[in-house]
Amino acid sequence: MALAGTTGWAAEAVAAALSFPDLLRNHQSMVFSIGLHFLRDRAAAEEIAQDVFLELHRHIGEIESDAHAIFWLRKVASRKCIDAVRRRKLRVAAALESVPEPAAREDRTDPMLNRRLQQLIAALPERPRMMVLLRYQEDLMPDEIARILEIPVGTVKSTLQRALGVLKEKLNRLNGEGRRG
């Protein structure tokens, strides 16, 4: 929507407004899924995703490229998720909103195993949980995760290693190893 006699800032706003819908369309699944896998609550995930994109809209003038937008979205989504949990003092391990895989999607693995794994991940403390999420949902390397979470890359590596060790141990136990009758 062009405005007659627009000044520089207005022209930028119009240009930015044209690309915001594209950013929303292209990256809504990413942002929603960060919230969903972190909080295991579809309603809360949608709310956070909505807040992230509204904030993107406010700061659209600062976005330089699609890659920049992706980085920005991951960073803001991660921060909002962690803040949400700390603010509400949610313990997702005992949450009542365990979310299964949607029935419409085709699962390539056992849905119960998926659910258990998601629950185990959700039981991790906030930072390791977000690191695992960014590593496996977004396929990011430790240095990228470090930039998003603004923590040293060494910390990311050691925290990830510990978290994966915990998940592996718990999964092994769930699958019957070391069970005592």
């Binding site: 699944s29 990413m30 899924s33 949608e46 909505q50 693995t109 991940i121 496996y136």
Partner: peptide, 20 residues
């Protein structure tokens, strides 16, 4: 297994329209 469990999911229908 982790990649499978962390697969992206679409937001609810109408999310895009609501945000816009």
């Amino acid at each position: 297994l982790l990649k499978e469990a962390m697969r992206r999911q679409d937001p609810p229908v109408g999310f895009e329209a609501r945000v816009l």
